[in-house]
Design a protein around this nucleic acid. Structure first.
Length: 132
RNA sequence: CCAGACGGUCGGAUGGCUGCCCUAAGCAUAUGGGAAACCUGCGGUGGGAGGAAAGUCCGGGCUCCACGGGGACACAGUGCCGGGUAAUACCCGGCGAGGGCGACCUCAGGGAAAGUGCCACAGAAAGCAAACCGCCUGUCCUAACUUUAUUAGGCAGGUAAGGGUGAAAGGGUGCGGUAAGAGCGCACCGCGCCAAUGGCAACAUUGACGGCAGGGUAAACCACACUGGGAGCAAGACCGAAUAGGAGCGACAACUUAAAUCUAAUUUAAAGGCACGUCUCCGUGCCGUCGCUCGGGUGGGUUGCAUGAGGUGCGCGGUAACGUGCAUCCCAGAUGAAUAGCCAUCCCCUUGAAAACAGGGACAGAACCCGGCUUACAGACCGUCUGGUAUU
RNA sequence: GCCGCCGUAACUCAGGGGUAGAGUACUCCCUUGGUAAGGGAGAAGUCGUGAGUUCGAAUCUCACCGGCGGCA
């Protein structure tokens, strides 16, 4: 269990992911992905990093805490097997996060990952095309 | 049984599996991250949100700064009395005023006779009282009238009963009295003042006197009494890249006056400005630009950081708040921030005649720590008391 | 976490105890061949919410609600 994912901690990291990454909205959550910076070490690049964002629009601090905990347990289940290494992920809570069933949240995250995986491949091919 | 008042307790319960945060004994001082400081391993004992954790409205502990010395002023807060407390604007017990049939509740509840201000509109008059409509008197004048009487108007007075305005019009009710009236007199009530008694006191009771003076507003200024230095754990301490800023040295530029030197530059003194709430007396510190050197220090890490005005039980003192003695317990410490997911049984609520099924579980998340206040809150339980109804 | 500031017409703001105002915007009329500008008239307000003080509160006091800013 030593491969517990690192957490994003600072505002600029979140802003970097939100600005330059891909985004996918599902009924229970919103997922953002961006590849990590190349300046980091190789060992660091193996890890995936996850951040959670639950804004004040969702509710008071109790409901915000609850939403973040559910998102974290969902990420614990899903990310280890199906997340691509070397990426930064940001999961954003929505108003339905506290009410939605847990299995549905898991499926939401899996679907978002597959969608963004395809999107990322497409983006890479496009970038290469531009480079050429 | 119904309706209600007050006080207190709880804030869904139990179990299983997979995970999270802190942590004791023990094992390793190796690996990894980092520039460094420092963090990190294995292991798993024990523990893991609240009555309001909230609002940040008060009071403290703790930390740093000012802590030069006064004096005057200012600012802010509190305001019946006594007690409790580390302290309070909190709590307890009394007193007074108001509300309720009652249990009981509410009260920024001192001074308006130190002074100043304000009281719009309406109204005659809104503050050393006054006289609009009225009422009354006249041996005054005019008119009606033969005269008296009477009536109307004017003039000169008296009056504060009645009307009207207003939130408020300078005691209230009744009787006497009078030309009409009036504390003018009397009784009761209110008010003021004096004395006695009771009480630590606020105050209460009684008696005598006064003869109504002193409208309201101090959550208007204010006077009186008391209290208060400022900031806050993003306080502070320690370890530590770069940059900016600081100190020393050198160079340059500017300057109000005086003295020293022929001038410049420099030095000294005074003056000026800024800082310590303001002023004053003294006292202290500082006063532009560029280059070099030095120690310090932000982002980062460690600490502050959880044994405390602590909880629980019993006894004693006290009407109570509370104090005190003994025993016992250790009970969250994160820093993008720890309680989640699934399952089972029970409890409660909703839909419903009932069962089953289904859905749901109030308000709400510690961030240095305590004592209060205020605000939010589904429901459940306990105790004391009041009013009504019924029965005995 | 701590410390401050502000809520008044659709918008920007005055008013700091006595009938709540200004500018822009809106509606109607005049002017013009028509529009703009200009002139005239009008409508639009729980003064953030609730208590209290006062005869009387947008104003004074207290408690809430909402918004904004500062401190590493």
């Amino acid at each position: 269990m030593s491969e517990a994912p690192q957490r994003l901690r600072y505002r600029h990291e979140f802003l970097r992911v939100a600005r330059g990454g891909k985004k996918c909205a599902m009924p229970g959550l919103v997922l953002q992905v961006r590849k990590q910076q190349i300046l980091e070490n190789k060992q660091n690049q193996k890890n995936i990093r996850i951040g959670f964002t639950v804004s004040k629009k969702i509710g008071n601090s109790v409901t915000r805490n609850r939403a973040r905990r559910r998102l974290r347990s969902v990420a614990d289940i899903v990310m280890q097997k199906s997340a691509a290494s070397g990426n930064d992920y940001v999961i954003i809570g929505r108003k339905s996060t506290t009410k939605r069933e847990f299995c549905a949240l898991v499926k939401d995250l899996e679907n978002a990952l597959t969608m963004l995986g395809k999107a990322r491949l497409d983006g890479f091919s496009k970038n290469e095309g531009h480079a050429k």
